[in-house]
Amino acid sequence: MRGSVETPTSRRTEEQVLMGGHMTNDAIGLRDVTRRYDSGRTHVTALDEVSLAFPRGTFTAVMGPSGSGKSTLLQCAAGLDRPTSGSVTVGGTELTGLSETKLTLLRREHIGFVFQAFNLLPSLTAEQNVALPLRLAGRRPKKAQVREVLAQVGLGDRARHRPTEMSGGQQQRVALARALITRPEVLFGDEPTGALDSQTSHEVLTLLRGMVDRDGQTIVMVTHDPVAASYADRVVFLVDGRVNGELIGACAEDIAARMTKLEAVPC
C-alpha cells in the first residue's frame, strides 16, 4: 500500500522536517521512560524507567497483570501522554521537545490507532468513516485511495454499507482501514480483538499478521489474550511498571504459562 499511493511533495518536505531528516531501524524507541501520576497525597508510578525498542516491520504484543502499566506504555509510546522523565522517539524524532501542534501532526501522519471499541460514526458509510482522518487533517481523500485500503482489509465490496449493516468483525476491519489510510509509521492496538468472538478474532489477527509480513507494517498491541499475543513476533511483559522479560515466537500455551507465573508473584 505504501508504494501505490501518491504523496504530495509538500507533505514529504513537512514530514522530513518533522522527522528530523533521518531514519532509524526502530519505529519506536523508549529510553528510561518513567510516568508518575500525583493526586494530593497519592503518588502512582505507572512506568518505572522503561527502555524498549520496536523495530520496523515487526509485531509486538504487550502483556502483564492488571495495573502493570500496559496502557500507559502505549499512550507514552504513541505520544498521547508525556512521560515524567525519559525519552520517546518515533521514527528518529524525539517527542519530548515537540510542541502540542507538532505532536498532533506527528500522531496524525505517522501513528494509527485501533481500539476494542470500533468508534465508527453510525451515520457514515464505511468509506466515509475511513476517509474521516484525512478530512479532519484538511486533506481531500481520493476515492481510489479509500477503496484500496478497504480492499486491503477485505471489505472492498462493503464501502457503501453503514456500521449497523456490518458484523462486529467487519466494523473492526473498517476501524483498521481508517487507521491505515494515513499509511502510519506504527499501528497501535489496545485490545483490538477484545470485543470479538474467537473466529472473528482469528480473522482480524491474521489480517494484522499479514500486514506485517506482506507490507512491513509495524504493530504494537496491548492484549490480555495469550492466543492473540501468539500472532506477534515477540511478547513483552510488564509488572509494576517495569519490563519483566519477553518471549520470541512463543505459542499461546507458553505465553499463558508465563502470565500465570507473573500473576502468581506476591505484591
Rank of each mutant, 00 (worst) to 15 (best):
A177G: 09
A175I: 00
L106P: 01
V130Q: 04
R108A: 14
G79L: 00
D190K: 07
A177V: 01
T104P: 01
G210P: 02
V222I: 13
D240C: 06
T7W: 07
R56G: 15
D32V: 03
D26A: 15
Q116C: 05
C267Y: 14
T24P: 06
G168H: 02
A61V: 07
G92Q: 12
V50H: 03
Q75C: 13
E14G: 15
H202K: 12
K102L: 08
S51L: 10
G29V: 12
I255R: 03
S198A: 14
A257C: 14
D233S: 04
V88Y: 00
H43V: 15
T125L: 03
T60E: 01
D32F: 02
S51C: 09
S39N: 13
A159L: 10
G210W: 01
K70A: 07
L187T: 01
T58E: 11
G40F: 09
M166S: 11
M63F: 05
R183E: 09
F115R: 07
P266L: 00
R31D: 01
E14S: 15
S167D: 08
E165W: 06
D213N: 09
L176N: 03
R11E: 14
A195Y: 01
T60G: 04
R140I: 02
S99N: 00
A78M: 05
G245W: 12
E94Y: 11
S99R: 05
A228V: 10
Q75W: 14
L95M: 08
A131D: 08
L106I: 05
A175V: 05
V149Q: 02
S68A: 14
V236G: 01
V227T: 15
F118G: 10
T223E: 07
P122E: 10
R258G: 08
L18W: 06
T42F: 11
E15A: 15
R107M: 04
N129Y: 08
M1S: 11
P65N: 09
S230V: 08
V265L: 11
R2P: 12
R140F: 02
V236T: 09
Q171P: 01
F237H: 08
R108Y: 09
L134V: 05
Q152I: 02
T218E: 02
R214K: 10
S39L: 11
V149F: 00
S99K: 00
S87M: 07
V186E: 04
R214H: 06
S51V: 07
Q172Y: 03
G112P: 03
Q16I: 13
L134G: 05
A264C: 06
F115C: 06
T101C: 04
R41A: 10
G189P: 11
L106M: 03
